[in-house]
């Protein structure tokens, strides 16, 4: 099947990409647009490292054909990172040592971003529910939960 053009909004900017049918959003981000903050840990929908926001909802970009998000709003970790300094969620992860190897961090941070956008004061249970699809093999999740709680406090007092 021939390639076609898909247009969508990426991090506040309209973009057009030429793709073969069923090309995933992950492939478009990483290989066509060279935005590599979105990781590729399994391409099976099992690890959560490729999580991005589509219209504010966390989605696994490795399972998402880019045609399906035509005309919609996509936000990646690059899109929430300020030019200088860090987003309050990033700062909370940094300050709480909620990172070790760092490979799961982009996906986890995007999930927490989506959670805090719709629920600014989540319980620990709600944070656990939100990140249940993200594999972190290093930290044991405890610092991630602390960082998410810390991020909620920072955003509320901001």
């Amino acid at each position: 099947m021939p390639s076609r053009i898909v247009a969508f909004n990426l991090n506040g900017r309209d973009v057009e990409v030429m793709v073969k049918p069923l090309t995933t959003l992950q492939t478009v981000l990483r290989e066509h647009l060279h935005l590599t903050a979105t990781k590729s840990g399994c391409r099976q929908g099992g690890c959560g490292t490729c999580t991005v926001l589509v219209n504010g909802e966390p989605m696994l970009s490795c399972l998402l054909p880019v045609e399906d998000i035509a005309g919609q709003k996509v936000v990646t970790l690059e899109g929430i990172t300020p030019i200088e300094g860090l987003h309050p969620i990033q700062q909370a992860f940094f300050d709480n040592y909620a990172i070790q190897c760092g490979y799961c961090s982009p996906g986890v941070i995007m999930v927490i971003k989506a959670l805090l956008d719709r629920n600014p004061n989540p319980t620990r249970q709600e944070i656990m529910d939100a990140i249940a699809g993200n594999v972190c093999r290093c930290t044991g999740y405890e610092p991630i939960l602390r960082a998410a709680e810390d991020a909620a406090r920072r955003l509320q007092s901001a």
């Binding site: 590599t36 990172t81 860090l86 700062q91 940094f94 040592y97 990172i99 760092g102 941070i109």
Partner: peptide, 14 residues
């Protein structure tokens, strides 16, 4: 840490 939380750390697949 900054590289990790911003996704700017370069891993081999990147």
């Amino acid at each position: 840490g900054i590289g990790h939380v911003t996704g700017k750390t370069v891993y081999v697949d990147d």
